[in-house]
Design a protein around this nucleic acid. Structure first.
Lengths: 240, 240
DNA sequence: GAAGCGCATTAAATAGTACGTATTCAAGCC
DNA sequence: GGCTTGAATACGTACTATTTAATGCGCTTC
C-alpha cells in the first residue's frame, strides 16, 4: 500500500479521493461536531497540496458539513446542519454506522413522495413512460421467484424511477437515485433467502395498470400501500 | 476599478461573491447547457485569482451545475442534472426567470411532504413542540386581519417549520428553509391587498389541535387540505 | 494589595495571490 | 489510422494579507 487507494467512488483525481475520505469520516462520526481539522494537517495526511485541500474544504463547506473560520480552523458542524439531500452525503451516511437511521429516514421520505408522484404520473405519463413502467412491472413478476433477487432489484429500481420521472416534477425526479440507494441497501441487508413478497409484486403491477388507465387516485392509493409495506418491512428488519 | 460590488447575499468574501454571481447567471439561463466558461476568463471578469475561481468551479461542480473537463473547459450541465435540493440552487432559481415553475415544483413537494410530517408530528411532538405550534397558530389568527401580512407570514413560516421539526425526520426538518422560501415568495407576489383566506387560518389552528391531541390521521388530513389549498391558490396566481 | 476589567498586542490560522509544471485530450496533420 | 501539437484544466509551491482568539499588561476598584 503505497500512499494509495484512489478508487473511492466519486470520480477520478486526487480531489475526489480526499473529499470522499474526509466526507466519509465526518459522516461516520469519526470527527464529532465541534472538532477542528486544520488544512495543512489534512494536506500532510493525504500528501496533497494545500490548494487541493482548500478546494475540498470549500466543497465540504458547501454541504454544510464543516465551517471554516479564521484563526480557529475547519470545524465540523452538527449533523442537523448537513445538506442531507446531497447524494454524496447520503452515500457517506449510508456507508457509516448511522445507516439504519438514515435508511429509515429515507424510506419515510419515499412513503411521502412516491404516492403523490404516482398520482401525478397517472395523469401526466407519456405512452413511453407507460410502456417502461409496464415492462418494469413485468420484469419484477418474472424475477420474483427463484432467487433472482439481483435482477428483481434492477426492475424494482427502474419501476420507481419511471414513476418519479413521469410525475413531471423535477424535485421528485431527482429522488430516483435516493430510491435506488434505499432499495439496493434493503436487498443487500435483507436475508437473501426468501423471494420478494408476492403481494408487493402484485401491487406494482396494479400501479402500472392504474397509471396506464389514468386513474390517479388508485395509483396513489396503491403506491401508498407499497410504501407502507416497505416501511413495515424495514422496521421488522431493523428493530428486533 | 475592481469590476464589481461585493455584497450579493451568501456570505462575506470574494469566493462567495463569485460563486453567487456565476450560480445566479447559470440558474437564470444566461449560460445555456453546453456552453463553456473558461477559468481564466472568469478570473479576469471578477479580477480574482485563478485559485479562487478553481474553488468556485469545484463547488459548482459539486452541485452538478457544471462539469469541468480538461482541454474543453467548464461546461454548463442541463438543468435536469442540477442538485435542485441544494438551498443555494433553489435560491438562484427562485431569483431567475424560472421562478414560477420552481415555485410550483416546490409547492407540489410541500403537498407531498407536509401532510405526512404532520401525521408523524402528532405522535412524536414534545410538549415544547405543541406549545410552539399553538403559539404560531394563534399568531396567525391574530394577524390574519388588517393587512398585517408580514407578521402573518412570520407565524406561518414558524408553524410549518415546527411541524417539520416535530416529525422527527431529519429529511423533513431540512425542508424548513424551502417552505420558508416558498411562503415568502407567495406573499411577495400575491396581491398584497386582501387578507389571508380565513378557512386556511382555521385549518392551521385545527392542525395544531390535532397534533396536540395526538390525532395523526386528522393532522395529516387537515394538512393535506392546507397543501391542496396552497397549490390551487398558486395555480390561480400563476396561470391566468 | 488583590481581584477584576478593559485594551492593545500577538500569533495562529485561513483567505487570497501569483505563477509554475504536469496532464489530458480533441483536433489537425502526415 | 496513427502521430503530433496546442489549448485548456489539474495540481503544486511559495508567498502576502487578513482576521481574530488568546495573551498579557496596565489601570481601576473594593
Amino acid at each position: 500500500m503505497t500512499t494509495e487507494g484512489a478508487e473511492s467512488g466519486s470520480g477520478p483525481g486526487l480531489h475526489s479521493h480526499v473529499l470522499d475520505t474526509i466526507g466519509l469520516a465526518i459522516a461516520a462520526g469519526e470527527y464529532p461536531p465541534g472538532s477542528v481539522l486544520r488544512t495543512d494537517e489534512i494536506a500532510e495526511r493525504f500528501d496533497a497540496s494545500r490548494t487541493v485541500v482548500r478546494e475540498v474544504v470549500r466543497v465540504l463547506e458547501s454541504m454544510h458539513l464543516v465551517e471554516s473560520r479564521r484563526r480557529v480552523g475547519v470545524t465540523v458542524r452538527p449533523a442537523d446542519a448537513w445538506n442531507v439531500y446531497d447524494p454524496r452525503v447520503i452515500r457517506w451516511r449510508l456507508a457509516g454506522p448511522d445507516r439504519p437511521r438514515q435508511l429509515r429516514s429515507l424510506t419515510v421520505l419515499r412513503s411521502a413522495i412516491e404516492p403523490v408522484a404516482a398520482g401525478l404520473a397517472a395523469t401526466l405519463a407519456t405512452p413511453q413512460h407507460c410502456a417502461d413502467l409496464t415492462a418494469a412491472a413485468l420484469g419484477m413478476v418474472r424475477t420474483s421467484r427463484g432467487h433472482q433477487l439481483e435482477d428483481y432489484l434492477r426492475y424494482d429500481i427502474a419501476f420507481h424511477r419511471v414513476v418519479l420521472n413521469a410525475s413531471g416534477n423535477e424535485m421528485f425526479a431527482r429522488l430516483g437515485d435516493v430510491v435506488a440507494e434505499v432499495l439496493t441497501g434493503r436487498t443487500e441487508h435483507e436475508v437473501m433467502f426468501h423471494d420478494p413478497d408476492p403481494a408487493a409484486v402484485t401491487l406494482h403491477v396494479q400501479v402500472a395498470e392504474a397509471v396506464r388507465e389514468g386513474d390517479a387516485a388508485r395509483a396513489e392509493a396503491l403506491t401508498r400501500r407499497i410504501a407502507v409495506g416497505a416501511l413495515e418491512e424495514l422496521d421488522v428488519l431493523l428493530a428486533p
